[in-house]
Nucleic acid binder design. Structure first.
Lengths: 257, 257
DNA sequence: CGGTACTTTGAGAATCGTCAAAGATAGTGG
DNA sequence: CCACTATCTTTGACGATTCTCAAAGTACCG
């Protein structure tokens, strides 16, 4: 905080590799993320400014109110975005998986925190260079615009959840969304896994911060979902949604969502 | 619903004028909205496809899950965006004032409702023509991208409010935001009004739907704010925020917001 | 094996919701 | 101009959900 306008991130990443082989060919961002619309020559131009970084689970990636000095593409792992009230109450406002884009384009100050939920690998783009690359590459801006529209839609669905749903409905909604996202991630990785079975990588506290609940309430709702035979939990980590229609009904999720 | 893919809006606007004088010169959208970045010739091109429409307070502008077949720029009045759960629970997800842009670009189906809160005037753009105009006008896409980023930020601040704040904090947050937005609107209209004094144009039900509360709770929180001498209400409609620092403290709003 | 961190469960409290009724406001028509 | 109705808002009493505080249970790590 307040260490000036250096172009480097203050939060020490556990590894920063310069001139790494980026393996764009194997990257999900190249396949279906922000890089999917770039030509080979554009990819090369982007590579030059790109660094890969890794963060350990729990580490901050950037902080609220700091100068917005980095953009990221998630290569693997889960990143959470959050805001904090002056008295410490915390609200998670988004979860990002590969190949999501993270960062505050056209803003000089961050408006939220970003933390690594699991170990995370990202491509990191320096702000000035990236913004000028962006201005020269309308197709990329178009792509980021579309991704932002999706994020806006997602945020509004979370608003509906936060404002209008009960505790158990909130948890059902989150578990279904996580199942979906984890399944998608496994497909993108080529590791076929079962739909509606996944490893829960969020702690009770992280779930509570997302749902606007306390951890005790979250824990109680898990117990209810188990007793009602909507889900099964193995080894405290592996969630299996047994009654998918029942869960969707509880979550009040439309098929189109 | 389901009346086919006509290019006209089913919800009857009380007035639709074709070939109207648009008075772009006097319009807030031209001054600081989406049109502010257009050249004279671009404005002319946009005008050709544009119709002005008016909606009465309470009227639907478009509905969730319908084909997304119109884009709008708010010229005057207030529009609310909302979602509804299958059992009827309603959540307002956004409020739009002049010169905001409304509509689902690059999406073929609406993802929320839009209703006129007050009497509303809009410019309405037909979808195909507007999207092709958009693709030919990178500066407009850039502008809409920035506006979308702001909306995303706003939505995330509402998420923080919905998930983490108490009833009275929620109301204080909303009243401060309304004061700000109404003051801005009056400035854009050239009618200088007092900061922190405004006409409350939302009903208790609309406030409750926004804050994720019931109307009785909203009403009780108004009473508390009055008793604590944070606000004064005249004629049930005119809100005066008496103790601004106290309200900001209660709302836990940072000055930078 | 012991310690630490996380999760679950329980009991009681606080906040918010539900139901019901009384006030207040605006519009209508005599 | 004054009832009279319809709608919206406020207030009260009670109930349900969620939170708080506390303790016990469980997994993880050295």
């Amino acid at each position: 905080m307040g260490t000036g306008d250096m172009d480097t991130n203050i939060d020490a990443p556990i590894k920063e590799s310069q001139g790494d082989r980026f393996e764009c060919e194997a990257c999900v961002a190249r396949a279906c993320g922000m890089c999917s619309i770039l030509t080979e020559s554009q990819i090369s131009a982007l590579r030059v400014m790109t660094r890969t970084r890794e963060y350990q689970a729990g580490e901050p990636i950037f902080c609220d109110e700091e100068p917005s000095h980095q953009f990221f593409a998630v290569r693997s792992g889960i990143v959470k975005l959050s805001k904090i009230l002056p008295d410490g109450r915390q609200q998670t406002i988004g979860l990002n998986f590969a190949p999501d884009f993270i960062g505050q384009v056209y803003t000089d100050t961050n408006r939220y925190f970003a933390h690594a939920v699991t170990d995370v690998k990202v491509c990191s783009f320096p702000p000035q260079k990236f913004e000028s690359f962006l201005s020269e590459t309308p197709s990329l801006e178009h792509r980021l615009f579309k991704l932002t529209l999706d994020e806006l839609d997602t945020a509004r669905n979370w608003m509906l959840m936060l404002g209008s749903k009960t505790a158990i409905e909130k948890l059902a909604t989150l578990l279904l969304k996580l199942a979906e996202r984890m399944y998608l991630a496994s497909c993108l990785n080529g590791q076929m896994s079962k739909r509606y079975e996944f490893e829960l990588l969020l702690s009770r506290t992280e779930i509570a911060d997302f749902l606007g609940l306390k951890i005790e309430t979250v824990s109680r709702q898990f117990t209810v979902l188990k007793k009602e035979k909507l889900i099964e939990i193995e080894n405290q980590r592996f969630i299996k949604i047994v009654d998918v229609p029942g869960m969707k009904d509880l979550a009040a999720i439309r098929e189109s969502d």
